[in-house]
Every structure is written in structure tokens, then in C-alpha cells.
């Protein structure tokens, strides 16, 4: 084992792993993150904590991770290259690991253009591939990115994101390859609605043997309404929502749409379980965390495995 991460142990056990996410609050209100996390307790193996998601200022991922850790849960520290240079990133990694946080997700982050501080300077000192490499070198070589030794190196289980639906499609597997080469342990994908295209991407992943080098978790986001489905299709960059999904959501009365959205998610999980190389599911119920237990249960992913710590 590279780390003490529970997530790593679950992957090693051969069980399907389940993660979900919590967005920290836009204010100094720790109750909010605790409340959200508690809904997930016992239903997921680890919880992603977003880092200024959609480039809007929120409580730091690090601080919110500590609250989740205190609940006896496993947080995944998300960190974006947008807001910090390599000094700040490494400092926070040391801090997080000192608080017992041993999973992280390395991202470049949404551009400030989309957020509430479009006037902010973009840092982007390193990119997500280089970020993974840096965290791996800290863990495996005990070296800071600048080359100095680290006393008690942080042993992070390293995650990264992959979007099988962005363009150019032919580069999507190759880009994953770069992240794997840099040292990624697990991948959480963009929300999957176009299952055919995802399966095609997985074929490419298997052709390169990447599925044996990295644990791929399929991203699932339940849709509440047909409006949300349309918004995701038309407004969210790099999102692929097929027309059938929109039709299906539109085909049921408004009050039944949330149930239909959950049904779609559960069916997707059932189908993707059979895809070779899918090692788990990352369920992102945006501001709808209370529905995660229902999805996990209906998808037959309960009970969650117990692993020795």
C-alpha cells in the first residue's frame, strides 16, 4: 500500500468504491458542511470536498475536510491550480496530511471567468498533470517540487479528473495516459449521461492498458428537473447530455422528475458496473446530497465494505 487511505484499501479489495462530494458553504458556517457530510455517512467510502468550485469563493477545502475528518469520515481534498502556486499547494498538502487527510484530487479548476471574482489573477503555476507528479514525488521520493527533502513526507492517495466527453475525443484517452504516467492512483470522471460514448472511451482506456494502472470511478449526477438537464446540455462546457435523457425527463410530470432523474442514475450505475475497468462510482448530487443514500442503495452498492485501518 502506498498510503493509509481507506479508498486505496477498498480498490485493493476488489470491491466497487463509492464517493460523493460536498461543496463547502459560502460563509463561515461549519454547520452546513457537517450537516451535508452526515447525510453521506455510512453510504460512501470517501467524500470529495470541492475547492472554490465554479470559481466562487467558499470555505477552504482544507478546513472543510478537517470537519469531515472529525466526523470519522474520509475526506478527499480537492485542490485547483487556479488559486495557488506550488509553494501554497505543497504547504496545504503538508497541513492536510498532518490533520490525517490522505486522499486528494488534483485539478486545474474552472476558469475565474465563470465565478464571482472574474477580476482575480489566474495562478496556473503548474497544470493538473504536473500537479499529480508533484504530489507523487512528495510521497514516493520525499522531495518537494523544488528538490529539497521533506521530513515525514505526506502520503496522499492521488486522484485526478477525466472528461471523456470533451474535444478532441481522440485525445481523451491520451490525456488520461499523461495523468497516469504522472502518478494518478484514481480517476473520477465527468458526469456520464452518454453511456455509449463513455463505453467507447473505456475501450480506448483498455486498449492502452490504463484500466490496470489506475482506478477509474464513473461520475454520476442525478438530475432534478428537465430544466437542469437542458442547462447541463447547453450551458456546461464539456458536458454531453443526449436528447433521449432530455426527452425522458420531459416525459414525466414535474413532480415525478426528481424520481426519474434518480432512476436514470441508478440504471446508469447498473449498466456501468459491467464495464471492465470501472472500479467505482463518484456520485455528485449537487445541492442534493440527501438523495445519495437512496441512489447508493437502489444501485445495490450497500452495505459499504469495512476495511481494516
Amino acid at each position: 500500500m502506498k498510503t493509509e487511505s481507506v479508498l486505496e484499501k477498498i480498490f485493493a479489495s476488489g470491491e466497487l468504491a463509492v464517493t460523493s462530494e460536498c461543496g463547502p458553504p459560502r460563509g463561515a458556517v461549519p454547520e452546513k458542511i457537517i450537516e451535508k457530510a452526515k447525510m453521506l455517512k455510512g453510504y460512501v467510502d470517501a467524500v470529495n470536498v470541492t475547492d472554490n468550485q465554479t470559481a466562487m469563493v467558499r470555505m477552504s477545502s482544507f478546513a472543510a475536510c478537517v470537519f469531515i475528518k472529525q466526523l470519522g469520515m474520509n475526506p478527499i481534498l480537492q485542490m485547483v491550480t487556479r488559486d495557488r502556486n506550488r509553494l501554497a499547494m505543497q504547504a496545504d498538502i503538508l497541513g492536510a496530511y498532518s490533520h490525517g487527510i490522505n486522499n486528494m484530487l488534483c485539478l486545474s479548476g474552472d476558469h475565474p471567468h465563470f465565478g464571482d471574482h472574474p477580476m482575480a489573477a489566474n495562478v496556473h503555476d503548474i497544470d493538473s498533470v504536473q500537479f499529480v507528479q508533484m504530489v507523487k514525488d512528495m510521497r514516493d521520493n520525499g522531495k518537494f517540487q523544488g528538490g529539497d527533502d521533506i521530513s515525514n513526507p505526506p502520503k496522499m492517495f492521488i486522484g485526478a479528473a477525466a472528461n471523456p466527453f470533451a474535444d478532441p475525443f481522440e485525445l481523451r484517452v491520451a490525456r488520461l495516459g499523461k495523468k497516469v504516467k504522472a502518478g494518478t492512483d484514481f480517476i473520477q470522471t465527468q458526469c456520464i449521461y452518454n453511456l455509449d460514448k463513455f463505453e467507447k472511451w473505456m475501450e480506448g482506456v483498455r486498449d492502452r492498458g490504463l484500466h490496470e494502472k489506475v482506478n477509474i470511478m464513473a461520475g454520476i449526477t442525478p438530475m432534478k428537473t428537465v430544466g437542469m438537464a437542458k442547462y447541463m446540455k447547453n450551458r456546461v462546457p464539456g458536458m454531453d447530455v443526449p436528447d433521449e435523457i432530455i426527452k425522458r425527463m420531459a416525459g414525466v410530470p414535474k413532480e415525478k422528475q426528481p424520481d426519474e432523474g434518480i432512476k436514470i442514475s441508478v440504471e446508469a450505475i447498473e449498466r456501468l458496473k459491467a464495464v471492465e475497468g470501472v472500479k467505482g462510482f463518484h456520485i455528485m448530487a449537487i445541492e442534493w446530497e440527501q438523495k445519495v443514500p437512496e441512489i447508493v442503495e437502489k444501485a445495490g452498492l450497500l452495505p459499504r465494505p469495512k476495511v481494516d485501518l
Binding site: R82, G109, H111, H113, D127, S128, A166, L171, R175
Partner: peptide
């Protein structure tokens, strides 16, 4: 590249265009 990625493209590339604009 809007994010000056040395190992791009990010997940926001659509039809050859940047997600920013």
C-alpha cells in the same frame, strides 16, 4: 491556453473552442 496548460487540453474544450469564450 486560458489556463496556460502545458499538458492540455482541459475538459472544457468544445468543438475546437475554449470554454472561456
Amino acid at each position: 491556453c486560458s489556463k496556460q496548460l502545458l499538458n492540455g487540453p482541459c475538459g472544457g474544450s468544445t468543438n475546437g473552442k475554449c470554454e472561456v469564450d
